[in-house]
Structures are given as C-alpha cells and as structure tokens.
Design a protein around this nucleic acid. Structure first.
Lengths: 350, 350
DNA sequence: AGCTGGCACTCCCGGTGAACGAGTGCCAAC
DNA sequence: GTTGGCACTCGTTCACCGGGAGTGCCAGCT
C-alpha cells in the first residue's frame, strides 16, 4: 500500500508543492521551492525528486518548461498523510459562536450557517436541513381555520415546522380537540420514520370501538388528516439543501478551466447538491472529495469538504463547502469541522 | 418633453439598433442595419441619423471605427416608447400554470417561482416573500411543549407560518386554552401592522378585571407571550428575499465589464436585494431599472425588471429578474408580468 | 431639404516573428 | 546520493503590419 519509493524528503517536496501552489496559484519550480522552504538540498536534487513524483502521478507539468502542479492524486496524498486539520483562531471561534447564537429559529440557523461557512472559508457553502425522517415528533397541532378547513402543523424536535391545509367535512371544535390529543398521545416523541406504522389503522381505532362516538370526529376527516400527515413525512424525506457564497467562485475566474458556469448550474440542482453532500457520516467526521473523485463532470475541477452534524451520536444531516481543487485544505477542513460541531450543539439546545 | 428632433424614422433606427444589439451582442453598423430591417433608405442616411442619436445620447460608439451600442438612455427610450410587453406563448403560459399549481405550501410557491422565472427569462430571478406586515392574522396557536415551555405559532392569511419558543412560568393547560381563545378573538383577521396597537394593554385587560381569575394564566406569562409575538412581527418586517438562476449570469461572461463577481456579491446581501426590488408597486405594475438607474455601483451594468404581486389590489411583495442591460426587455417584461399575476392568483386561493 | 454614392480616414483585430526567461532533463564530477 | 553546469524547450510579451469594418464628410441628385 505504501509507496516505498517516496521517502521522507520526497513527501516534504510534495507538501511544499501543494502549499506553494495553493498560495500562489502558479506552477512551482525547483528553485522557488528551495528558496521558500529550507529543504537543505539544491534545486537539482529537487528536480530529481520531482521527476519521480511526476512518474508516480502526484504532480504534473502543464507544459515542458513550466513548474509543477499537484494532481488530484497529489492532493489526495496531501490530505491523507501530509497535513492536519488546522485549528481555528480564537477570533474565528468567537465569530462562529456569536453569529450562530443569534439565530431565532431553524431557518435562521441554516441560513446563518451558510453565510458563516462561506465567509470563513471564502468558498461556496452547502448546508442540508436536518433530516426530517431522522428527527422525532415534538407536537402535532390541528387548527380549525374555517368550518371545513384545517391547518395541520407538524413540529419536530429539531425545530422544523411544516404545515399543510386540509379540506375535510364539517367538524366540531371539540372533536378536533379530542383528535388532537389522541394523535399527540400516539406519536409525540417517536421518530418520524416510525410514524407511518403507528398510524396504520389509527382511524379505525377510534375510541368507542366500532360505534362512532357522538362527539368524535367523522372517520373520513380522520382519514384525510392522517393521509396528509403521512404525505408530509414522505414528501419531506427529499431533503432540502441550501447554498451560498457563490461570489467566492468568481473571485478568481482562472481557477476554472473555462468558466464557472457549469459549476453554478450544478449547484442549482437540488439533486446534485444532495449527491454532493453524500451519504450521511458520523457527526464531525470529515469527508473530502477531490476533483475527479466527484462523479459529476461539471465538478471535476472542484473539491468538496463535508461533515455530518447532529446531536450526540445522531447524524441529522450534512454540511460543507465546495471550491477549486487548489483550496486550502487544512484551513477549510478546520472551519467545516468546527461549524458542524457548533451547529450540532445549537440543535441540542433547541 | 418630446424630442422633436427624433422623427419617426430615427426612432425606428434606435429600435433596430437595440434589437440587433440585444440579439447579436455586437456593435451594430449602418450597413447591417439596412440589410436586416427594411428601412427603405441607404446606409449613408442611417449614418446621419445615428450621428444625431449619438449627439442626443441614445447610442454610443465604443471606438472610432465601430458600430453603435445603445446607452442606458437609449434603452430607456426603447422601453418607454418603442416597444410593448411581449405576451407569452401558449406553451410558456401552460408551463407557469402547471409548475406553480403543484406547490404545496408558501415556501414551495416561492422557490418554484424563483426557478420558473429564472428558466423563463434565462436570467437571475429575485422573489420576495409576501410581506408579513401587509398580511393579516389567520390564527395564533399556543402549544405547551413542557411545563414551562410554550411554542407560539403565528399563521397569516398568505400562508406564512412563523414560530418561536417562549419560556414562561408554570402554566395550566386550561389557562393556556383560555388565553389562546382570547388572543385569537382579539387579533384574528387584523392586519399585522395593527396588532401592536391591539395588544397595547392586553395583559391588563384580563377577564375578571383587576382581580386575577383563579384559572387565568399568570400576568407574567401573558406579558412574555405578547412580547415575543410583537417581536416576531417587528423582526419579520425585515423581509426575506430569495434568488436563483445565477448560472445565467455566467452564460456569457462578456456581458459584464470585468467579471460577474461584484454582481454575485451584491445578490448575496439581503439588504441589496430589497433595495433592488424597490418600493412596493401596485400588483402587475412593471418597473424597469436600467444600468446606472440602479443606485449600486456593482449593478450599473445590469437591469432589473420587477413587478408587485398580491391579492386583488393588495400588493404583498415584489418579484422580478436581473440581467445584463442588453437584455430582451419585451420578453422579460412579459414573463415577469405573467408570473406576478399568477402568483397573486395562487395566493388568493391559499 | 433630404437622400445618396463615393472616398479618405481611423482604429480594432489577427497573425507573424524575435527576444526573453523560466524551468527542465541530463551528465559529469564530487 | 547530491551537486553545478549546460543545452534545450516552450510559453509569454511585444512590436509590427495588413485587412477590414465602420465612420464622417462632401458633392451631387431628386
């Protein structure tokens, strides 16, 4: 597995190349390398090492008389073995806390997180709403708006609130109250994923058995409400993802082969965003996908750093950032990780 | 007011220049003009007209031996007097209906509208949420989540739902019910703007006068709830705006002087977006702001087409699109106007 | 008075070629 | 294994130049 040909110094050279290239955005040559890092050897020696690194596919020469640029494989090795997550500065840490502490509801937490990540990493931020199906029911509310019109509100313990209008036959206020109580007794505290099973034959299990109680709501209404409730849960399983900080893509247009157009296009597709964030991982477990490791053609010149976030061991969703492959990996990873952790903590309090 | 120097033909020339320039994105010369439009005169004649139009500031020559390009003032005249809103095709009309009819709640309406506008106009779409302060209270719900924890949910007749957690002293379920009923009796159906006045001394007007009724909620709790309710209304007055379709900005990067960076940056500022949409105008009254007519420096090479939308005569908010000044004004105006009208109709049903 | 063809002029654009310089690979020597 | 030297490659920059598009102006025509 290990490349025995890559001894200590060659790895140092690779690291130096990545660092310099990320900093300057220009192919780095042997002379510049020995000047900026004290490698203790001459440029000629470095050239030999470079030739080897190129042979192994870690770096690449845009044209004959140019310096070297890391390949995706080179970045991969750098991320895996040559660097560590960079801890945030005290100031950054404070910024995260003060910025997120002001959030008033879930929408606000998410939108603040997007802005925060974008600003911290100077890249495009992507944040997924806490998964509905993995959270639990905190309360269901039935509000009679008109004689035949009910608003059904579902509140989860992650602070998410979903509502739908339901048209039913005429229903008494008292019957509505009873139904509300019964419904809540049944499903409050349960995972959303469990709810469909619990409501299986909820309507027929109405109190009073076979005989419809006088004050009870009509069966048809109960059925209609349950149906809509289930629909909300199922439909919302298609997770919502928001992004921001696209201006950062345009800062240096030359980071991208032709234009940023395909990248922007990709970002505007919910499906793509979801794929981008990937499978849920344990909270604060960082995932890095570099260049062609991303499946989408439009994103082969970008890298994505993501992390799960959640309460304790529970992963509720993913968040992360997207940028050019030549990104500051240690710094980005530090920021993503710190933000993910803090968002998780915020959700615990809610 | 009228420019007497601009006779019929000169206006035709200006219109032709705008149309050709928008279509080709290249300065248009006198020869090309007579070829593509049957103006019935020779290029030399057109050149004289062009010289005059330039003198009056409607067109401009990038350099000595180039064709002409419309100025902001030229576009302005074009929009005001030389063209009409282009009606949509049957297919586009159908697309609007089928796309928006599927929306399940307000969030969905807004996000679908953004995508729809972006796709229809091939530009950046900007949509403001229906203004809270201009809508009316449909219902206020108090949900006891724990002994001392209440969720306050505000539902407006535009379908907007806002919620907040409130910590209060211990409170009986029955007291909560009574308070809920009293609160709703007081403010349901009223404009949000009126609510602060109505709640002025709501707590002290508790039933039973001076003497606190046994079952009534503690004064402190009522006060706390009212305070949060007011806060929601005030805070939410800062309207929410969402945008999409930024990929359209990058389609032809050359539409913008340097890069699209400043434009993207501007779009990510809520404050800027709000300014962009401008003051509320009557529903389906189109506003066009061209180039430097926009106050922001970053947006001087863009144009914005907006329209109010709402129920009947009531304007609830604004929506519109942003693109390069060289945009297809008639088509864009048609699309914005049609979408605004249909979104208004959807909200009426909700 | 307005329109037209002709013509000289301006200036962008694309291609060519030379000088330059950064960076390399290789080799002989240490 | 490392080093200095050296020839070589190739992209970049700049000056130069011809072609061409488009103009402004003018004299003549209707």
């Amino acid at each position: 597995m290990d490349e025995p040909k890559l001894d200590r110094r060659r790895l140092d050279v690779l690291r130096a190349i990545v660092e310099d290239y990320v900093a300057t955005q220009e192919p780095v040559g042997s002379r510049a390398l020995v000047e900026r890092h004290n490698l203790g050897v001459s440029p000629a020696t470095i050239r030999n090492d470079m030739a080897l690194l190129e042979e192994e596919g870690y770096i690449h020469q845009p044209h004959t008389s140019a310096g070297r640029v890391p390949t995706d494989k080179g970045y991969r090795l750098f991320v895996d073995r040559l660097t560590n997550v960079k801890p945030l500065t005290q100031a950054e840490r404070r910024a995260i806390h003060s910025f997120l502490d002001e959030a008033v509801d879930l929408d606000d937490v998410v939108s603040r997180t997007v802005r925060l990540l974008a600003q911290l990493t100077r890249q495009v931020a992507v944040v997924q709403y806490p998964s509905l199906s993995r959270s639990a029911v905190r309360h269901v509310e039935l509000v009679g708006l008109a004689a035949t019109r009910i608003m059904l509100v579902l509140i989860t313990d992650t602070g998410r609130v979903e509502q739908r209008l339901v048209e039913v036959g005429p229903i008494e206020e008292s019957a509505l109250g009873e139904l509300r109580a019964r419904l809540n007794a049944e499903i409050v505290g349960r995972r959303l994923a469990e709810v469909p099973a619990l409501l299986e034959d909820f309507a027929r299990r109405s109190p009073g058995g076979e005989v419809q109680a006088a004050a009870g709501p009509p069966l048809s209404a109960v059925d209609a409400l349950c149906a809509v409730l289930l629909e909300m849960i199922v439909e919302q399983r298609e997770e919502r993802v928001v992004f921001g900080g696209t201006a950062n893509l345009a800062r240096f247009g030359h980071d991208f082969p032709d234009t940023i157009h395909p990248v922007l296009e990709a970002l505007e597709e919910q499906v793509v965003l979801l794929k981008l964030l990937g499978e849920a991982t344990a909270p604060s477990l960082l995932t890095v996908r570099i260049g062609r490791e991303n499946e989408l053609d439009q994103l082969t010149s970008t890298s994505v750093v993501t992390s799960g976030y959640g309460r304790g061991e529970d992963t509720l969703a993913q968040l992360g950032v997207l940028g050019p492959t030549r990104m500051d990996y240690p710094g980005t990873m530090g920021a993503v990780s710190a933000v993910a952790r803090y968002v998780g903590r915020i959700l615990e309090q809610a």
